[in-house]
Amino acid sequence: MKTNRLKQFALIAFMALGLTACSDDDNNNAQPDNTIAGIASRTTNLSSLVAALNRAELTGVLSGSGNFTVFAPTNDAFAAFLSANGFADVNAVPVPVLRNLLLNHVIGTEIASSAIPPAVYVSTLSPINSTTGAPTISMFVQKIGTTVTINGGASNGGTTVATADIDASNGVIHVVNNVIAIPTVVNHVVANPQFDTLQAVVTSGATGAFGDQSAVLAALNGLTAAAPATVFAPDNAAFTAATTGTGFAVGATPAQVSRVLQYHVTVAGNVRSNQLTNNQSIPMITNPVQNTTVILGSGTVDIRDTANNLARVNQADVQCSNGVIHGVNRVLQPQL
């Protein structure tokens, strides 16, 4: 009997050791979390991002299924953001503010750096308000050589990619050296080189070629999420045509230039292209108010001015925090 008990004890001990060994093997063979959230949690220089994701309750999104592109700010980038905005740490940032800011760094598709064209607008996951189905903020991505710049770079509230193409099971991470601010109308005008002339006109000083347009700039800077505007933004070629040769704005006085600029901003709020209707009359912020007219074609949107000219919308729905921009190929002509 004693011998049998010893055999039974030895057998139990052996089985216990075997189970322990199997458990250890299972732990050793466990696959690492290669989701975006998992990789970030193992990257020392992204610990502030991880803390921010946890506070904003977004870790689950970036550790789940899907295909995302995340522009991930470094710890130094977060430290600079917190200092500039008077926050002691990530926990001091209000959760709604932090959540929208972080979502402004996320795109709902996977985009490798090699797939980025010279210039493109993409939609982030950051909504403009809490309304169900609200439009999301646009991001302007530009690539020159191997350098990828977001929203015009750090000086314009954007950033530059420092380390590209960290592959994850649910997307890709591009490490960036600045926290990306949610862009305003003015930010998006500055970011896109196709609006360089518009920027030059709006920022023209008293001694500039277009006279002092500071009042127009102040009006654009004064737009808010609660009181947004829609801007029809002429590209560089459009301004060249209007201000040279037989262009209607040749020789315009500063006051007339102001009226031309005002004639590209509607008081109707944040009007996206799918909200425009054929023959819709849109009041602009000229004083007195002058209207433009929407002309819808088969897949086209044109804006008719007071001189019966048509400006084609060639870049629709650039969504900003305080309004939306529609790029057009002609400077709209008001009654001067």
Rank of each mutant, 00 (worst) to 15 (best):
V250F: 11
I116L: 09
V313I: 04
F71D: 03
T147P: 02
Q213W: 15
N322K: 07
G245R: 08
S298C: 06
N27Q: 13
P94R: 14
I180F: 10
L102A: 03
F81C: 05
V289M: 13
V185F: 01
V61Y: 04
T240S: 10
P96D: 06
R55V: 04
V301E: 00
T109L: 12
R272E: 01
D76W: 07
V70L: 15
V265P: 01
P32D: 02
N178V: 03
T207S: 14
D212K: 10
S114R: 15
A16M: 12
V216Q: 14
F195E: 01
A200R: 14
P135V: 01
D317E: 03
T109V: 14
D302K: 02
G299K: 11
C320T: 10
A79W: 03
G299W: 11
N314K: 07
T224Q: 11
Q280V: 01
N291C: 04
A79L: 09
N156E: 08
L276S: 05
A37H: 03
N278A: 02
S113H: 06
T59N: 02
T69A: 12
N91I: 11
T163H: 10
L11E: 14
N278G: 03
P118V: 11
S47Q: 15
V324K: 02
H174T: 09
G108C: 05
V97T: 15
Y121T: 04
T74G: 06
G152I: 14
T69F: 07
A252K: 09
T246K: 07
T136M: 03
L261W: 12
P96K: 15
M139H: 10
N221Y: 08
T286F: 05
T266M: 01
A51E: 11
N100T: 09
T244K: 08
P334R: 13
Q290T: 11
A77H: 08
G297H: 07
A227Y: 13
F81V: 11
A219M: 13
S126G: 08
D25C: 02
A51D: 10
D235S: 04
A241P: 05
T207G: 05
N187E: 09
T230G: 00
L101M: 14
F239M: 09
Q31E: 13
S114H: 13
T207M: 09
L332Y: 01
F9H: 06
A237L: 13
G145M: 13
A72S: 14
N279L: 08
N187G: 04
Q194D: 15
S155Y: 09
A21N: 11
D25Y: 14
T292N: 02
A21C: 02
T163P: 01
S321L: 11
T136L: 03
D26M: 12
V61P: 00
I107T: 04
N192K: 11
V148P: 01
N156D: 08
P32F: 13
Q256Y: 08
V90D: 02
A233V: 03
G133E: 06
P117E: 12
S321A: 13
N156L: 15
